[in-house]
Amino acid sequence: MIRPIPGEELARRIQDACPGAVERWAGLDLWVRPERVLEVCQHLKSDSGLGFNLLNSISAVDYVEHFEVVYHLTSTSHLHSAVLKARVFGREDPTLPSVVGLWQGADYQEREIWDLMGVRFEGHPNLKRILLWEGYPGHPLRRDYLEAPR
């Protein structure tokens, strides 16, 4: 059985390595400050007690007043999982640090989020559109996206 680590416990386990990175927690989720995502992920991956070596998925949700990027992580050695969330405010140029350096699996997923949701990942080596073509107007998964008039 994979044990989901509650947000509170996770916050406790990372606060020594990354003090002040945690925003809040609720249930199984843990919110971290967007600019500290890379640092927290680095710790989650390299800490021997946590050992999150498998990045299951990165999702982005448009809550209109902010974007939320959700990282689902699993450790194959300790058989536990975690949900890491980061809220990015501002609709013009929401930016998060990229975690491609930690998990290659983030490569296409971050490109997809940039393509469809318009959240930019700083440090991504090849942040291009992936499903749509270069020059496509807008990011269609945003709630305020309107199809371009034909």
């Binding site: 998925s57 999702s59 982005a60 949700v61 448009d62 959700v70 290659q104 997809e112």
Partner: peptide
């Protein structure tokens, strides 16, 4: 994997698919 977000309405607020063949293509 499916990541669903609900806002209490009859339609999902966000419907996200973790597509295995998409991610496997990375390598």
């Amino acid at each position: 994997g499916f990541y669903l977000v609900s806002d209490g309405s009859i339609a999902p607020y966000r419907f996200k698919l973790r597509a295995p063949s998409f991610i496997n293509l990375t390598v």
